[in-house]
Nucleic acid binder design. Structure first.
Lengths: 214, 214
DNA sequence: AGAGAAGCGGAGGCGCGACTCCGCATCCGG
DNA sequence: CCGGATGCGGAGTCGCGCCTCCGCTTCTCT
């Protein structure tokens, strides 16, 4: 605990704070439009600041991307907690919709959303916890199959990611119908599943690749 | 017609033909393990040839990737035709399984599978045709919802892509269970879908981005 | 077996993109 | 209203990865 990681280190001058916002916003836009290998200079240009400014606030391009990932994961986890509070079995479904919606909005950082980096790993852990609780709630109310695991919930979002990344700007809403079909598939049914779920261990390792190759 | 594009231009010396094979194989491996921005030199190294050899056979890195895409699309389309020949309504399901399986095997080129390049666009067109016919067959036998469109079939594969890319080496089979759930969702049901399908036009534009930006 | 075509390797060139540096501008407490 | 601290910009550096080039090797046809 103590003075964790993200907390305020010092107030940051007013203009500087504003520039930070501009940068994050610009990064979201640029990466969404051109993919993660858009140039850093382009992000700075769109934000209307110099590259120097960018690098003073984010020591590295990766750090900038991580900021986007943090934004996204934070609001998704928060939404999950909220949905969970209803405790009426409908939380899981609306959570999936919410999470999908936000993945679409912040599609720029999707390739890094589930792919490692210890900074954001804590948030992903929280995500897993919330997902498990939402699933338990939905199962308790008989709204989804009993043989689902919390890993299956993650997989749903990974699949939505595929749809979003493929349909990109042409049809930014294509994921909606897909999610509807998928949710129907999650409902209790007498069809047995023959393939095993991911284990909790595997699901965790998916989000934290090996040591430090990249 | 005439002497199309892919057909034999000249027999190619035996060792050269073998090297070409080695290169494609190496590319599949390397790109699968390290992603598409693995170095060209690495591919050559794994294939056991020099970069010069690689570039004599494939004028550009993109051309090498396209070769992988062609491989994949060709066998998927072929499998689709075969499944269609059964004409008993089960073709769609086994086609999806087959296509998913092959996407997993050739996961190195997934980011380019559905993303433009006029060379492979012809194959994607064939894919769309086969998918539509398989869907019609399945619907005629009452095995899937009547309100599905052939675009929905494509979307299923795009979503599988997301699962494969995310679970990568940790759990290369994770997509199986997901596909099972998805297929259940495709079955006829009394739940109405509230989101519209992609239009045929949109689905086509997804696979052929703008002019020549990139 | 010999000749010439076809193929091979890998050292470098070249361009692009992440990051650094430092003289100048802007903010804000007294 | 002034001075020092904080922040800014963008030209330049550096490394990396795609691709070229050319002297040598290997195949194949007679």
């Amino acid at each position: 605990m103590s003075t964790g990681a993200t907390p305020t280190e010092r107030p940051l001058r007013r203009d500087a704070a504003r520039n930070r916002e501009l940068l994050v916003e610009a990064a979201a836009t640029v990466f969404a439009e051109q993919g993660l290998d858009a140039g850093v200079d382009e992000v700075a240009r769109v934000a209307g600041v110099g590259v120097g400014t960018l690098y003073r606030r984010f020591p590295t391009k990766d750090a900038l991307i991580d900021a986007l990932v943090q934004d996204l994961l934070t609001s998704v986890v928060a939404a999950g907690r909220e949905a969970l509070a209803r405790a009426d079995g409908t939380g899981l479904e609306s959570f999936l919709a919410y999470a999908a919606e936000h993945q679409a909005r912040r599609r720029g950082c999707l390739p890094r959303l589930w792919a490692g980096d210890e900074v954001t790993e804590g948030l992903r852990r929280e995500f897993r916890v919330v997902a498990a609780e939402l699933l338990a709630d939905a199962q308790a109310h008989g709204r989804v199959r009993g043989d689902l695991t919390s890993q299956d919930v993650s997989v749903v979002l990974w699949s939505i990611r595929g749809v979003i990344e493929t349909t990109k700007d042409v049809a930014p809403d294509a994921w909606r119908r897909h999610l509807e079909l998928l949710v129907i598939g999650l409902r209790p049914s007498d069809v047995r599943l023959s393939s095993p779920s991911l284990t909790a261990d595997q699901a965790q390792r998916v989000t934290t690749p090996a040591p430090r190759p990249r």
